[in-house]
């Protein structure tokens, strides 16, 4: 939002409350977050009733950013440690399986963006391991940290204009190239093909670089070792 305001582009944030009617296709960018188990259950139940509308919006190219719990919910199911499968929205070809240990810590990624490779940083905190099907591609390659499942080296998911990630921290301010990519896609969908004017991203790039160097220097070691 700030990055649009700084460019003098009008922007409005609408919160869609539980049970409130909303036509997702009318929005430029949708955000799905995560929360505690209790909060997530409430959100999942609400999204069930909106599944088809959300699916149409995704197919129509609406930009969606889904983090952590929001990411998992878009997939086919979440399998608990007890083997029970909680169905997801099945809007993206991926599924999540509860893991034995929580994956917590800083993450560094390499992202392919239209302008080239970008280095992204963030913080992950999840016990679900997510596996991608053929219909989606990963958001980025893990340089340090766990990512989707701690084993295949990928983080997040992409499908049409949907971007999913376990990274918060939050994700966009510290990764301005990704933030602007989302905005550019949203503008393009509106038929406004203008290129976003450049901003002074000095602080953004500094925060990104400092963390990227620190996290990759510490390697993929877990825990507080290798930290100042």
């Amino acid at each position: 939002m700030q990055r649009l305001k700084w460019r003098h582009l009008p922007v409005e944030v609408a919160e869609v409350a539980l049970g409130q009617d909303a036509d997702f296709e009318e929005f430029d960018v949708l955000f799905l977050g995560g929360g505690s188990d209790r909060e997530q259950d409430i959100m999942a139940a609400d999204l069930k009733s909106r599944r088809d509308g959300l699916g149409r919006a995704i197919e129509a190219g609406v930009v969606v950013l889904a983090i952590c719990g929001g990411y998992q919910m878009l997939g086919h199911f979440y399998r608990t440690a007890g083997g029970r499968e909680i169905p997801g929205l099945s809007l993206l070809d991926l599924h999540t399986v509860a893991g034995p240990r929580r994956m917590i810590g800083n993450v560094a990624l390499e992202l392919e963006l239209p302008g080239g490779v970008a280095w992204a940083v963030g913080f992950e905190n999840h016990s679900g391991r997510t596996f991608l099907g053929r219909g989606v591609r990963p958001l980025g390659r893990v340089v340090a940290g766990n990512g989707n499942n701690g084993s295949d080296g990928w983080e997040g998911a992409r499908y049409r204009n949907v971007f999913c990630s376990y990274l918060h921290g939050p994700l966009l301010p510290k990764n301005p190239l990704l933030a602007d990519h989302l905005l550019q896609l949203a503008l393009a969908r509106r038929g406004e093909g203008q290129t976003l004017s450049p901003l002074d991203d000095g602080l953004e790039n500094l925060a990104n670089r400092v963390m990227y160097e620190r996290v990759t220097r510490a390697g993929t070691r877990k825990g507080p070792s290798g930290r100042r």
Partner: peptide, 23 residues
């Protein structure tokens, strides 16, 4: 502090004038 840059970034996105922020 260790996360000085993140603190500065937070203030920037809060709308604090950037010229007042020092890392």
């Amino acid at each position: 502090g260790i996360r000085a840059q993140d603190m500065a970034l937070r203030l920037k996105y809060a709308g604090v004038p950037v010229e007042l922020i020092r890392v």
